[in-house]
Simulated scan of single mutants.
Amino acid sequence: MSTSRSASNPNSTVDLGAQYISCTPAYASSHAQFYSELISNHILTPCQVVIEGMRDSDGDTKHYVTPKGTSSIVKYYLQQSGANIHHNCHLQTIDVKCDDGVETILAEHQGSDQKHSFDVVVLSQPVPQILQLGGGIQDILAKNSNVLKKLEEVEYSSRYALGLYFSPGTKFDVPWEGKYTYDDPCVRWICIDSKKRGNESDADGPTLTVHTSVPFGLKHLEDNKQDVQKIILQHLSTLLPGLPEPVEVKCQRWRYSQVYKGVEGGPGCMKLAESKTSLLLAAGDAFVHSNFDGCIESAKKTSHTIIDFLKSNCKL
């Protein structure tokens, strides 16, 4: 759920990851409280634009867009949590201490490394990145071959995304706001992102999102991003002849995009280590399925697991 801002105009934004939220009838019922809250707080609004080529498995599925960009969903929940959020930190190592909780070492982008200890740590990054962490977590996983095997079997799709920023007054001569393409070997999705989100104001200029196909992403995964950007723009110009010149282009490489193959059984979360003083969990949509509702299901399971742990160890 990544919303990028123009380097020259922070009010000009484009979604480079998730494009809209799709809610099936089943989840509309079981997750009604979440959707109701997000809609009433104007984080989500019904999608009312034309999207060509959408393949709906269920005609009753409802689609929602985020007027302030998909990152507004994440920001909303962080704000509601009241948590003290630290940005620009890179998690380097995880160690589980017998009597001193879960110890982490964070590399600050500016400054020295920071060591912290917690009762509970939840890892929600893509599973391959969990497996790349240093410290005692490697020994923990090595001793639990069943857990390690399940984590190693998780697979993600890979793709590139382009965000194009245009000057105010730019118009696009197309009958849609979003379009899936299936014949082009490179481009899979094109979207006038600002109009998709219902932003009719032209003060900051429109923005365009382009997603590549997964085969293209895998083929060029290790290529230079600038070279890949040129290829994507060439294909885009063929699909949209006469496309105006953007004032800025951002190329995003999604090495870990949507979950292609999740953790077996969809447990919601997984205990990597547990003692009376500490709990280490792995969670995220890879432990259910890849979409917003998968994230909610994982969050629900994770929160219940944490509460049970804290209650059983007299910490709550």
Score class of each variant (00 low, 15 high):
Ser30Pro: 00
Leu91Gln: 03
Phe292Gly: 00
Pro126Lys: 08
Leu218Asn: 11
Ile232Thr: 03
Tyr156Arg: 09
Gln234His: 10
Asp119Arg: 14
Gln138Val: 08
Asp119Val: 10
Cys269Ser: 12
Ala203Thr: 11
Leu280Asp: 00
Ile190His: 00
Ala7Arg: 13
Ala282Glu: 03
Trp254Asp: 00
Gly178Phe: 02
Asp56Cys: 11
Ser278Lys: 03
Met270Ala: 07
Ser312Cys: 13
Gly266Gln: 13
Tyr256Trp: 15
Asp285Gln: 05
Ser157Ile: 10
Thr209Ser: 15
Ser257Asp: 13
His304Tyr: 12
Pro206Leu: 03
Leu221Val: 14
Asp113Asn: 15
Ser72Met: 13
Asp99Gly: 09
Ser40Val: 01
Thr212Met: 02
Val96Ala: 11
Thr207Ser: 15
Phe287Cys: 07
Ser8Ile: 08
Glu245Thr: 15
Leu131Cys: 03
Thr45His: 07
Asn88Ser: 13
Ile21Leu: 05
Trp189Ile: 12
Cys186His: 01
Pro10Arg: 06
Tyr77Arg: 04
Ala83Met: 09
Gln19Asn: 12
Ile43Lys: 02
His116Ile: 10
Gly59Phe: 06
Ser303Asp: 09
Leu133Met: 02
Asn41Glu: 12
Gly17Lys: 05
Gly284Ala: 04
Met54Pro: 03
Gln114Ile: 13
Arg255Trp: 08
Gln125Gly: 12
Ile43Phe: 02
Pro244Trp: 01
Leu78His: 04
Lys115Val: 13
Ile105Leu: 12
Ile39Lys: 15
Met54Glu: 10
Ser81His: 11
Gln229Tyr: 10
Glu103Asp: 01
Thr93Lys: 11
Thr13Gln: 02
Val154Asp: 00
Cys314Phe: 14
Lys171His: 13
Asp204Ile: 05
Leu78Ile: 08
Ser30Ile: 11
Arg197Pro: 10
Val102Leu: 04
Leu221Phe: 07
Glu152Cys: 09
Leu279Glu: 02
Thr302Asp: 04
Ala83Gly: 09
Thr70Pro: 00
Val74Gln: 07
Val247Trp: 00
Thr104Val: 04
Phe216Glu: 02
His31Arg: 13
Lys195Phe: 10
Thr209Pro: 04
Gln19Gly: 12
Glu200Ser: 14
His235Asp: 03
Lys75Met: 10
Leu151Ile: 08
Val259Asp: 00
Thr238Ala: 07
Trp176Val: 05
Val102Met: 07
Phe287Arg: 02
Lys225Pro: 14
Arg197Met: 13
Ser124Gln: 04
Lys261Cys: 00
Glu153Pro: 06
Lys301Arg: 14
His211Lys: 00
Pro128Asn: 06
Glu37Ala: 09
Asp139Trp: 09
Leu240Glu: 04
Thr209Arg: 09
Leu221Cys: 11
Val247His: 03
Leu310Ser: 03
His90Val: 11
Lys196Ser: 14
Leu208Thr: 02
Glu222Met: 14
Tyr27Asn: 15
Gln229Thr: 13
Pro215Lys: 09
Asp202Cys: 08
Gly262Arg: 01
Cys89Ala: 07
Pro126Phe: 08
Gln226Val: 06
Ser275Glu: 05
Thr305Ser: 11
